[in-house]
């Protein structure tokens, strides 16, 4: 039953673009917990909680928490060791 609630990283692409102004789904991240590198589009996303939770697809650690209020957004990115963004050609 849990898996039907799980989305992939593409689900947060629009929100990331709105917040950061860059396309994030093709970025490469490294999980601070297990050290695995992966593309953001392949991460596990849960969006029906009170906020959005992004987890490592390998060790399931929380990488990112996003809470959106009516006039504010809170971001916790502490689960990432790094995020590599490609510069435009």
């Amino acid at each position: 039953m849990a898996d039907d609630r799980r989305l992939d990283g593409n689900a947060i692409g629009g929100m990331m673009l709105e917040l950061f102004g860059v396309e994030m789904t093709t970025a490469t991240e490294v999980c601070r917990t297990c050290g695995t590198a992966d593309v953001v589009a392949r991460l596990e996303v849960y969006m029906d909680a009170p906020g959005t939770v992004v987890r490592c697809a390998h060790c399931k650690a929380v990488l990112m928490r996003i809470v959106r209020g009516p006039d504010r957004t809170w971001l916790d990115l502490s689960g990432f060791r790094s995020i590599e963004l490609r510069s435009p050609d």
């Binding site: 849990a2 609630r5 029906d48 909680a49 009170p50 939770v53 399931k60 929380v62």
Partner: peptide
């Protein structure tokens, strides 16, 4: 009874 989860069950 809506279900809300922040991760796998």
């Amino acid at each position: 009874f809506p279900v809300l989860s922040a991760g796998p069950t």
